[in-house]
Structure formats: structure tokens, C-alpha cells
Design a binder for these strands. Structure first.
Lengths: 197, 197
DNA sequence: CCTCCTACCGAACGTGCGTTCTGTTGCGCG
DNA sequence: CGCGCAACAGAACGCACGTTCGGTAGGAGG
């Protein structure tokens, strides 16, 4: 059990340093220091810097996808499934800001073949968004249209999740309602008299 | 005149290399090579790497803001002003993909005081978006609400402009219409029977 | 013709990086 | 007790980077 704690500490140290400095500015020396290890000690546990980035991304995406599945499992209607996605994403952006930053900014810096593995996991998340919007679609949008709509939605979410807009978990929840309304009904919708539970 | 061409070539070389590799991976040696200069020759024109990034960002933001102003000058209604913004942004994302990538990804890596100067120019662009949405707002949204809506919109735009969604300038124009409709009327709007000129 | 000055270039300097080599300690197990 | 292996650490290696230094060619001005 202690050894898994060691690994967890290392991954968390890597996450913090990489999020703060960016992958290429984050030195293995600083990560080792943050993990309370010597540089050589760090290399006892991981094979190199690239693997550190991979471990961070892998863990973060698992957490994000797991949270999304858990939140959507309770939802009954397509609307609440969308709201669950938005809420989960924004909440993740608030609580795991470092992870989200790395997911959006640094994942392309991975070397193959780890990059493909992470790309697949990112695709999993995108697929969930696509399915959620597909269930919601009133007219028969093509797969390409749904895909750009999904990217639009995720772009919106990352746009506010990355910047310092989220100030608390409650704030994130409230914002999720606004974002959902805007996405579903548009900016011009005059009042917020929607039909919801 | 030849010397301005030299500078332009240097800035364009820096833009291409930085966009492709990312700022910290882009070496001054590679930029010099792309600009047909020796490393020391490059340093004859610019003071350092940070200044190269600044020159790229400064030029790119001037171009973007100039294009936005030109496009919005012809617009008469708030709706067409918004459409002009969306179209300009997506077109910029297609035609100056390298510039947009650097604007969104690398600007924070600038050192002070150049960082503040670029931040101000970015603020100028955001301000235009804020004003455009303010003119359009049907209910009385607060400045904070308008600001998050602006960030939502720009996040959407960057979400598709950064990824390889734009395949041609015409494609960008068509996509702009879809994005505008989605932002104004929402994802649930059943048909695209909008009232427009 | 000599003198500047601009526009460069080759080579080097110092630094920080990722990684590796060579241990050393201490604990479980026979 | 002693053997071996896991868990580290100190120091170094080699490389790539940003930057600088010392120089040179060539054209303009007197």
C-alpha cells in the first residue's frame, strides 16, 4: 500500500509542477523535489519524463470520464444528461484545475505510442459528448454537424473552465445552469423561464 | 524597404517555427535557419527570443483586430456585427492558423513588460466581443454575465478554429453561419428558418 | 583612398536539462 | 547470521539551448 502512495505522490507532484510551469519548463529535478525524492530516486520509479506526463494524463482522464459516467447515470432525460456533462466538466475544471490544464495544453507533447493511447482516451470523452448531443438533437443533424457542435460545447466549457472564472464549487454549479441554457436556447432567449425539474 | 522585408521575413519565420514546435521547443537556431540567417545574424535584428515572440503576437493581434474592425464597419445590425465577428475569427483561424495558435497557447510565456502590452491588446479584442454582445442582449445582462458569455463565444470559436475543422475559406464562412445560429438561437432550435437579410 | 557603419558570420561560453552510473542502506527471508 | 533485493542518493555525462564575442565584407561619405 505504501508503494502505491509513493506513486500517487509522484504523479501528483508531476501534475502540480507541469500545470504550473508547462511540460517543457517543468524539470525532473523540480518534480523530484516536489515528490520528496532525489532526482535519481525519482528515476527508480518512472522511466522518464514522458512517462510522468503520461501517468498524469491517464489518471486525469480516468477521473474525468468516471465522474461524467457517474453523473450521467443518474440522469433520466437528454437535457439532464447534458446538464450533467456541463456540470461535471466545470466542476472538474474547478476542482482539478491542474489536470484540466494539462489535458488541454500538454497532451500533444507526449511521444508515441503513449500519445495515441491518450488520444484514444480523449476520444472516449468526446464520444460521450457526441452521444449526449445526439440524443438531444431535434432535427436530424449529421455526424459531422454533431461533431462540430460537440467541439463547440467543449470549447465553451474549456474557455471558462481554464480561465479564473470558477471561484467555488457552487459557483461552478450555478454557471453550469447558465451555460446549459445558453447552449440549448441561445443567447437571445429573453428570460430564463425554462421547463425543468 | 528591403530592411522591412528582412524584419517581416524574420517575424514570419519565428511565427512558423513557434506555431509548429511551441515557444520553448522552438530554438533560435531553427528560427534563424528559417529566416535564411545565421544565428548571430538573427541577433543583429532582434534582442532575444522573447522579443521574437512579442513581435509575432503584436503583428498577429493587430491583424486580427484590424480585420474585425473592417468587417464590423460594414455591419448595420447587432446580429450582422456578431456574424462579422464570428466570420472574421474563423477566417483568421483558417488563414492565419499559426498566428491564432500562438495567440491562444503561447502568449502567457512572454516576460514582463511585454506580456502586459500583449495582454492589453488581447483585452482590446475581448472588449470588441463584449460590446457586440452587449448590443445584442435582449434582457439586461450584467457586465459579468456578458463577460462570461463573451468568453463562452470565444471559447467556442477557438475550439473549432484551433482544431483541423476548417478546410477552406468557404468552409469557414459556412461554419460561421452555423455557429452564429447555434449561439443566438441555441442547439434545440428545430429549423434554420431565421429572419435575416 | 581612407574611414565608418551596417549587415552579417563562425565559434565559443555558460547554463540547465534529461538521463545514467555507482554506490549505500536497511529490511525480509532462509 | 548473511544474502539479496528494493529503495533510494550523489555525482557526473553529454547535449542543446540562449546569448555573446570577435571578426569581416562592402558600400556610402568625405
Amino acid at each position: 500500500m505504501a508503494i502505491e502512495d509513493r506513486y500517487r505522490g509522484i504523479v501528483e507532484a508531476a501534475r502540480d509542477v507541469i500545470a504550473r510551469r508547462g511540460y517543457h519548463q517543468a524539470s525532473t529535478r523540480e518534480i523530484a523535489r516536489a515528490a520528496d525524492l532525489s532526482l535519481a530516486g525519482l528515476y527508480h520509479y518512472v522511466g522518464g519524463k514522458d512517462e510522468l506526463l503520461f501517468l498524469v494524463l491517464d489518471r486525469a482522464l480516468d477521473t474525468l470520464i468516471g465522474a461524467l459516467d457517474a453523473a450521467q447515470a443518474k440522469a433520466r432525460t437528454p437535457e439532464t444528461k447534458l446538464l450533467a456533462l456541463i456540470q461535471t466538466h466545470l466542476d472538474f475544471g474547478f476542482r482539478q484545475a491542474a489536470d484540466l490544464k494539462i489535458i488541454n495544453r500538454d497532451w500533444e507533447l507526449l511521444e508515441e505510442p503513449r500519445r495515441s493511447e491518450i488520444a484514444a482516451k480523449r476520444g472516449e470523452y468526446l464520444k460521450r459528448g457526441l452521444a449526449t448531443l445526439g440524443d438531444l438533437d431535434p432535427r436530424g443533424r449529421s455526424r459531422d454537424e454533431l461533431l462540430s457542435a460537440t467541439n463547440l460545447l467543449l470549447g465553451m466549457l474549456n474557455g471558462i473552465a481554464t480561465r479564473p472564472f470558477l471561484r467555488s464549487s457552487d459557483n461552478a454549479r450555478a454557471l453550469a445552469g447558465e451555460v446549459g441554457a445558453l447552449f440549448l436556447y441561445g443567447f437571445l432567449e429573453p428570460v430564463e423561464a425554462h421547463h425543468d425539474a
